[in-house]
Amino acid sequence: MSVTITSLQNRRIKRIVKLRNRRHRDDEQVTIVEGVREIRQALLHNRIPLEAYVCREIAEADAETAELLSQLDALASIKPVQMYEVTPELFAKIAYRGESGGLLFIFSYWHVALNELPLKINPFILVVENAEKPGNLGAILRTADACGIDALIVCHSPNASGTDVFNPNVIRASLGAVFSVTIIIEKTNHVIDWLHKRNICILAATPDGDVPYTSTDMLQSIAIVTGSEALGLSSSWLTHADYRIVIPMQGVVDSLNLSVSTALLLYETVRQRGSLKHSVLSDQPPPKILEQG
């Protein structure tokens, strides 16, 4: 059963506006998802919203959005989804972005615990440390989905605040790939220990690397590690890397955009592996999704 909200002073409206700020999202362990494509991907990957805010005047004006709204109505009849109906004026107030289609969902944070990640034969893992820009991380997620990686590990060094994985701009830039890619959030030192214990080769990408990325064996079990554009990888990764790989640069600049360089490395792995298929080991269960809230 839905609840109708008509006042801009409603506490739920004010709360959603506050969720634009990371501190409020982290305090509640929830994030905002808007847009037909992103919401569809969330539902396809069995993410159940805690709350759904709907402006039917907007949503029902578009056939694609209206179809998704019907799915939501069916879902709310069997799952504990709190539905709220809002006016166009209220929706304009709470919408994080334009062209949201009249739908805004609140989801609990989700991720997979590092030790719960099932390993395939010759796993293909991407590690991104201290990514600063939501647009970069969203673009990386799109590429990660396209390349079929086994997991994206988002990590941070001891003195960093950590990447805002659940920033609505990350979700938007990923076009919903944030829901299809297995994501782990962990501290850098824990990730290094985990990789070493499982004999996964660490390929640290750095402008000071000594092995061209196209000369690197990517058929083995690998973790490709990329870092912030401003600071690069922390010394921990550079010290513990099995290989420091480099993308050759012929011009005057010394680095590429993080999402571009990551895409080159991932697609080189795809090129080397070709049509090889890697199946999950039979004794490994599927990853357990951790949801807060």
Rank of each mutant, 00 (worst) to 15 (best):
I5N: 14
V17D: 05
K18H: 11
D26T: 02
V30M: 12
G35P: 05
N46D: 10
N46Q: 09
A52G: 03
R56T: 11
A59K: 02
A59G: 13
A63E: 12
A66H: 11
S70K: 15
P80K: 10
M83A: 05
E89D: 13
F91M: 05
F91E: 01
S100D: 03
L103C: 08
V112F: 09
L117C: 08
L119D: 12
K120G: 06
P123H: 12
V127G: 10
E129P: 05
N130A: 08
D150T: 08
A151C: 07
V154A: 08
H156R: 07
H156E: 10
D164N: 10
D164C: 02
V170K: 03
A177E: 08
V178T: 13
F179A: 02
S180T: 15
I202H: 02
T206I: 03
Q220T: 15
I224Y: 01
A230I: 09
W237S: 06
L238W: 00
L238E: 13
Y243D: 07
P248Y: 15
Q250N: 11
V252D: 07
L256C: 03
S259F: 01
V260Q: 14
L264D: 12
Y267G: 01
Q272F: 09
Q272P: 06
K277F: 03
S282F: 12
S282Y: 10
D283M: 09
P286N: 09
I289N: 03
I289S: 09
L290K: 15
E291F: 06
E291H: 15
Q292P: 00
